[in-house]
Nucleic acid binder design. Structure first.
Length: 851
RNA sequence: GCCCGGAUGGCGGAAUUGGUAUACGCGCACGACUUAAAAUCGUGUCUCGUAAGGGAUGUGGGUUCGACUCCCACUCCGGGCACCA
C-alpha cells in the first residue's frame, strides 16, 4: 500500500533497520482473511458448557436476514458487544457471544411472493449473505451455536412453549376487533400500529372483528412492572416500559341507575373530585352499551350515533381534533355522595378498553370532561381551588384545575389537599360498599395470530366434537407445508386454509375428522425465547437442558461483576435497539417469567443488564434507506479500508447511545490511525530491543498505565469514542518522542487495541513473536502508583479569571504552593494594592485567589 | 398536551461530574519531500485585538471565588406516549 519514509521521524541516535526481518506493509485484506481463517480453524471463540472459569453471556439482538443485506448501521451493536466479549475473554471469562437468525415474517414472505422463490430458499440465501458479511467483520461469535427460528428443530420448541401457555390458560381464542392492515392483509398487535397506521407499510389500519389467538400478557403486567426495579437497564428503557404497561391506581365506583333496577360501574383515579361529577359517558364499543342498549330510552339515537362513529377510522377520529361528540341515552345515574342525577351519554372519546368503558365526568377538573360539558351544555361544578385562589364558577378552560389544589363544595372533604382527599374518599367509598380499589394497566393482551404463511403454525386442531385440541407434544413440530401458493387472502384467512391436504387431519383426541389451525404466530414468537436456545442449541429433548441454563444464567460471578440488589441472574449484558423496548423486550420478559413459573428456567428475569445504541444515519443526518440511495454497505468499506477500520470508525464516530451521521470523509481518521499503529510497531521492532532506556521510557510506562485505565473504564461505560481517542493520544505521544517504546509496552498497547481492531492487533502480536492468540492473552492491569504525574500543571485564577499556570510537584504542600503563587510575577501584578480576601486550593487542579 | 434525551469551532465530538472549555478525529491553510500530483511528515486553525486584554458552550436570569456542568424561565431539534378516565 504505502511505503513510509521514516528518515525524518527516526531519531538519528538510534540504530535503525538492524537487518532483522522487515515488516511488510499494512495490507488489511491479507491480514483480515488470514486471521479469520485461523480463529475459525482453532475455534477460539467457542463457549464451553463445562468450564471452571466464570461465565459471561453477552447478547445482541439476532438479525432479521433481509434481502438487502446488512448496512453499516446493523453492526454497531455487534461491534460494541464484540468489544465487551473480547475484553471479558482476556479477563478470564468463559464467554458466550452467540448469533442466529430471526427469519420468519413478512419481508421474506413478501419478497417470496414477488419473485416466486420459496421463503425457505429466500431465507437460506439471505442468511448466507448475512453470515458472510458478519464473518468478514471478525466478530467473535460462537458460530457453532448458530440458530434459525425457521428451522423446524427450533420452532418445534416455540410451538412447545405455546402449548404450555395454552395449558395454563394464557393462550386463548377471542372474537374481537383487531387492527387489520388491508395492504399486508394481516392482523396487527397494538404495538405494531403507529399513529393508526401499519408500522410496516404505513397503510391506515381498519378495525375488523375476528377470532384471534391471544396471549394473556396482562396477567403478568404487575410483575413486568415491578421487577424493573431489580434489573440494570438504562433508565430510559425502564421508563418507556413502565409507561407502556401504564399502571394506575384507582377505584371502581358503582352508581345506581334511576328508574332501572341496574347499576353502572366507573373506573376513576380521581374520586376526590366526585362531588363535582355531573355526567357519565359510555364508550360506544363498551360492554355497558352492548349489554344494556335495549333499556336506553333513546335507543334509536344511540344506534344512529354508534353507526356514524364506526364509519370513521382512528385516524379520522383523531384528525377531527378534540371536538367532542356524544348522544344522550335518556338514562340517569345517581351519585351516592350527594344524590345528584347524572345524565348518561354515549361519547366516542370514551374508549371501550379503558377502565370499565365508562367514565364519570367532572368538567370542572378535567379538560376533556370540560370540553364535553361545554358541547352538551352540561352543569359544571367547582370542587377544587387551585394555587391561584380562584373560587368563581368555571366557565373558561383556563380555570380547569387538574393536578393541584384544595377541596371545596365537597362535604367532609372540604379544606383537604386533593391527594389526601383521594385517599380519604377511597376508604369512605369502600366502607359504604359502592367503591372498590383497583389497579389498571394500559397494557393489553397480545394478539398472537397472523394470517400469513411464513410463521410458526399454531399447534392446535379444531375438532367438531372436542373443540380446540392441542397437538400432542410428541407430534411436534407441526411443520409448514411446502406449497407453491402462499398469497395472503382478503377474507382474512391464512393462505394455509387453502391447503386442504394439510388442513384436514385427525383429532388427536377422538381420532375423528378435524381441521388444523391455519393462523401462524407473529415473528415476535421465535425471538421471545431464542437466547435460551443458545445455551443448548442442538438439544432434541428439551428447549435447553437445565444444567446448561443454570450454568449460563446463574453460575457465580466474581465480585467485580456481581450486581447489588435483588437480581438473581440472567444474561449478563444485552444490547439492542430502543425500537424493541415495548415489543421484543417486553414479550421476551413475559415468556421468560412464564417459563420461570413452570420452573423451566432458573431466573425470573432474562436479562440482567440492557443497554441501547443510537442509530447510524446516512450522510447529512437522514435515515439510511434504499429509496434515498444513501445506504452504506459494509462489504465496500471492508474491501477499501478493512474490517478493523470500519469497526474502529463506528465506535469512534460519537457517543454510542446517540444517533450519528455516517461520514465517508471521517472514516479516513481511524484508517490513518491503524497505519500509524502499524508503523509504530515496525519502528519499535526495528530498533535494537536491548537499547538502554532513557527518562522517556518512564514517561511511557506512565502513559501506558494511564491508557490501560482509560480504555478499561471507558469500555465498561460504553464510551468507546473516548477509549479510542486515548489510544490515539498514546500513539501521538510515542511518535512525537521518536518511539522510545519497549516491545513490552508495545504489546500492552496492542492488547488494548485488540477488542476494537482484532486483526491488526493479532498480526502485530504474532510478528512480535507471540505464539498464542492475543485474544487468549491477559487483559493488562494498571498500577495507580504509576499513573501519577510527578509534575502537575495547575491553574491560577484571580477573581475567577485564569491569570497564570504553574508547575508543581505531586507532593508539594499547599502552603508551599500558595507561597509560590503569591510571589509569582503575574499574580503580583494583578493583586497589587489589593487585599487578599480568600485563597481556594483545589489539589492537582487550581488555586483561586479572591481580592 | 405529557414523559425521556439533546443543543459546545467549518463538521463529528471531548471536558476527571462544580475546577485551565474546545481533547481526539475530519476538514481547511501554509511548509517539507516530489519534475509534478497523490500519499506521508511538520506547523497552524473558536473569536475580536498589533499587544495588554476582552468575548464565546441555544436564549434570558440566578447561585458560586469559579458554571458546558446546579437552579428558574424560555427557544429549537430528536425519541416515546397520547381523549388512559
Amino acid at each position: 500500500m504505502k511505503e513510509y519514509d521514516h528518515k525524518k521521524i527516526d531519531p538519528p541516535t538510534l540504530k535503525l533497520r538492524t537487518g532483522k526481518k522487515k515488516m511488510a506493509e499494512y495490507n488489511h485484506l491479507r491480514i483480515e482473511k488470514k486471521w479469520q481463517n485461523i480463529w475459525e480453524k482453532n475455534g477460539i471463540y467457542h463457549a464451553n458448557n463445562n468450564s471452571k472459569k466464570p461465565r459471561y453471556f453477552s447478547l445482541i439482538e439476532f438479525p432479521y436476514p433481509s434481502g438487502a443485506g446488512m448496512h453499516v448501521g446493523h453492526i454497531r451493536s455487534n461491534t460494541a458487544m464484540d468489544i465487551i466479549s473480547r475484553k471479558r475473554r482476556m479477563e478470564g471469562y468463559n464467554v458466550l457471544y452467540p448469533i442466529g437468525w430471526d427469519a420468519f415474517g413478512l419481508p421474506t414472505e413478501n419478497y417470496a411472493i414477488k419473485t416466486g422463490i420459496h421463503p425457505i430458499k429466500v431465507t437460506k440465501d439471505n442468511t448466507d449473505t448475512f453470515r458472510k458479511q458478519l464473518k468478514a467483520l471478525g466478530f467473535s461469535f460462537d458460530w457453532s451455536r448458530e440458530i434459525n427460528t425457521t428451522d423446524p428443530k427450533y420452532y418445534k420448541w416455540t410451538q412447545w412453549i405455546f402449548l404450555q401457555l395454552l395449558k395454563k390458560g394464557l393462550a386463548y381464542k377471542a372474537k374481537m376487533f383487531i387492527n387489520w392492515c388491508p395492504s399486508c392483509k394481516i392482523g396487527l398487535a397494538n404495538e405494531e400500529v403507529v399513529d393508526g397506521a401499519c408500522e410496516r407499510c404505513g397503510t391506515v389500519v381498519e378495525k375488523r372483528e375476528k377470532e384471534q389467538w391471544m396471549l394473556a400478557i396482562t396477567k403478568y403486567a404487575d410483575r413486568l412492572y415491578k421487577d424493573l426495579d431489580d434489573v440494570d437497564y438504562l433508565e430510559k428503557i425502564k421508563i418507556q416500559q413502565r409507561n407502556w404497561i401504564g399502571k394506575s391506581l384507582g377505584i371502581n365506583v358503582t352508581y345506581p341507575i334511576e328508574g332501572l333496577n341496574k347499576t353502572v360501574t366507573v373506573f376513576t383515579t380521581r374520586p376526590d373530585t366526585n362531588f363535582g361529577a355531573t355526567f357519565l359517558a359510555l364508550a360506544p364499543d363498551g360492554i355497558f352499551v352492548k349489554e344494556n342498549l335495549s333499556f336506553f330510552p333513546n335507543k334509536k339515537g344511540v344506534l344512529a350515533y354508534i353507526k356514524q362513529v364506526n364509519k370513521r377510522t382512528d385516524i379520522e377520529r383523531l384528525a377531527e381534533g378534540k371536538k367532542k361528540t356524544g348522544v344522550f341515552t335518556g338514562l340517569y345515574a345517581v351519585n351516592s355522595l350527594n344524590n345528584k342525577k347524572m345524565p348518561m351519554y354515549v361519547a366516542d372519546f370514551v374508549l371501550g378498553g379503558v377502565g370499565t368503558g365508562v367514565l364519570v365526568g367532572v368538567p370542572g377538573h378535567d379538560m376533556r370532561d370540560f370540553e364535553f360539558a361545554q358541547e352538551m351544555k352540561l352543569e359544571i361544578v367547582r370542587v377544587v381551588v387551585g394555587p391561584d385562589g380562584d373560587t368563581s364558577p368555571i366557565t373558561r378552560k383556563e380555570q380547569v384545575q387538574e393536578d393541584t389544589g384544595t377541596m371545596i363544595n365537597s362535604g367532609f372533604l372540604n379544606g383537604i389537599d386533593i391527594h389526601e382527599a383521594t385517599k380519604k374518599i377511597m376508604e369512605y367509598m369502600e366502607e359504604k360498599g359502592y367503591g372498590k380499589k383497583v389497579t389498571t394497566y394500559k397494557l393489553r393482551d397480545w394478539v398472537f395470530s397472523r394470517q400469513r404463511y411464513w410463521g410458526e403454525p399454531i399447534p392446535v386442531v379444531h375438532c367438531e366434537k372436542c373443540g380446540v385440541v392441542p397437538v400432542p407434544e410428541k407430534d411436534l413440530p407441526v411443520k409448514l407445508p411446502m406449497v407453491k401458493n402462499y398469497q395472503p387472502t382478503d377474507s382474512g384467512e391464512s393462505p394455509l386454509a387453502n391447503i386442504s391436504k394439510w388442513v384436514n387431519t385427525k383429532c388427536p383426541n377422538c381420532k375423528g375428522e378435524a381441521k388444523r389451525e391455519t393462523d401462524t404466530m407473529p415473528n415476535w414468537a421465535g425471538s421471545s425465547w431464542y437466547f435460551l436456545r443458545y445455551v443448548d442449541p442442538k438439544n432434541n429433548k428439551e428447549f435447553a437442558s437445565k444444567k446448561n441454563l443454570e450454568y449460563w444464567l446463574t453460575s457465580p460471578q466474581p465480585l467485580s461483576l456481581s450486581r447489588r440488589g435483588g437480581n438473581t441472574g440472567g444474561i449478563d449484558w444485552y444490547n439492542g435497539g430502543m425500537e424493541h423496548t415495548t415489543l421484543h423486550l417486553l414479550y421476551s420478559r413475559f415468556w421468560h417469567k412464564f417459563l420461570y413459573d413452570l420452573k423451566l428456567v432458573p431466573t425470573s428475569e432474562p436479562y440482567m443488564k440492557r443497554t441501547s445504541h443510537g442509530m447510524i444515519l446516512g450522510e447529512g443526518g437522514v435515515k439510511m434507506s434504499k429509496s434515498l440511495g444513501n445506504v452504506i454497505n459494509p462489504d465496500d468499506i471492508v474491501k477499501t479500508y478493512g474490517a478493523d477500520t470500519l469497526r474502529l470508525y463506528e465506535m469512534f464516530m460519537g457517543p454510542f447511545d446517540q444517533s450519528v451521521a455516517w461520514s465517508s470523509d471521517s472514516i479516513m481518521g481511524p484508517r490513518r490511525f491503524l497505519e500509524r499503529v502499524w508503523r509504530m510497531s515496525r519502528t519499535v521492532l526495528d530498533m535494537d530491543s536491548k537499547m538502554s532506556r532513557t527518562v522517556l521510557d518512564i514517561k511511557f510506562e506512565m502513559r501506558i498505565h494511564q491508557t490501560i485505565k482509560k480504555v478499561s473504564e471507558d469500555i465498561e461505560a460504553m464510551k468507546f469514542n473516548t477509549a479510542i481517542s486515548s489510544l490515539m493520544i498514546f500513539v501521538n505521544e510515542v511518535e512525537k518522542n521518536n518511539f522510545p517504546l519497549s516491545t513490552f509496552h508495545l504489546k500492552t498497547f496492542l492488547q488494548l487495541l485488540s477488542p476494537f481492531a482484532p486483526h491488526i492487533a493479532e498480526e502485530l502480536w504474532s510478528i512480535l513473536g507471540e505464539k498464542k492468540s492475543i485474544n487468549l492473552s491477559t487483559w493488562p492491569k494498571w498500577d495507580e502508583n504509576l499513573i501519577k504525574n510527578e509534575e502537575i500543571k495547575i491553574a491560577v485564577q484571580i477573581n475567577g479569571k485564569l491569570r497564570a499556570e504553574i508547575m508543581i510537584g505531586a507532593d508539594d504542600k499547599e502552603a508551599d504552593v500558595q507561597h509560590r503563587v503569591l510571589n509569582n510575577e503575574v499574580v503580583l501584578k494583578h493583586i497589587a494594592g489589593k487585599e487578599i480576601k480568600k485563597v481556594i486550593y483545589v489539589k492537582d487542579r487550581l488555586i483561586s485567589i479572591v481580592v
